[in-house]
């Protein structure tokens, strides 16, 4: 089974975004852009997800939710911050209820810019995430073999 690669599953969570990036993430999965042809599947269950797409900044109320979703995901995992709000806080950075980008609570691997992030950019982010996931999976498996 060593040379069979896995299809990573995507999980999408909307932090405190304006909805623009969320809709673009969905649009990236629908026929015109069709990110699923790259071997990823959209799921709603954190326990079965490998790649975490997060849009929007972090606020007081959703920081625990984001942390919890991240912790529920099995290792290895990859986090993609989609849109400028998830990267830095964006236009809402100065608002009293925004703590900052997604990296204030969880480690982020790939940053996708844009307001709203375009589907092409999101797909590029997903492609990089798939590569990174495969690399981490290989390392993870090698580690496991060494321990065994």
């Amino acid at each position: 089974m060593a040379n069979i690669s896995r299809s990573p599953w995507l999980l999408h969570y909307d932090g405190s975004s304006c909805n623009g990036c969320d809709i673009e993430v969905l649009a990236a999965l629908t026929p015109v852009y069709d990110a699923e042809r790259l071997g990823v599947v959209n799921t709603g269950d954190p326990m079965q997800a490998d790649i975490f797409l997060i849009t929007g900044g972090i606020n007081e109320q959703n920081k625990d939710v984001v942390k919890q979703i991240y912790d529920q995901m099995p290792r290895p995992k990859v986090v993609v911050a989609v849109g400028v709000c998830a990267c830095t806080g964006g236009v809402f950075k100065d608002c009293y209820n925004i703590l900052g980008g997604a990296d204030t609570v969880i480690p982020v691997d790939i940053y996708v810019p844009g307001c709203a992030a375009r589907p092409q950019a999101i797909i590029d982010g997903v492609v990089q995430a798939v590569g990174l996931f495969q690399q981490r999976l290989d390392e993870h498996n090698a580690q496991k073999r060494k321990e065994a």
Binding site: D14, S16, G57, N59, Q61, F92, C95, Y96, I98
Partner: peptide
């Protein structure tokens, strides 16, 4: 309140 940003305060 999960997406409350407080943009009116800007």
């Amino acid at each position: 309140g999960f997406i409350h940003r407080g943009l009116e305060s800007l």
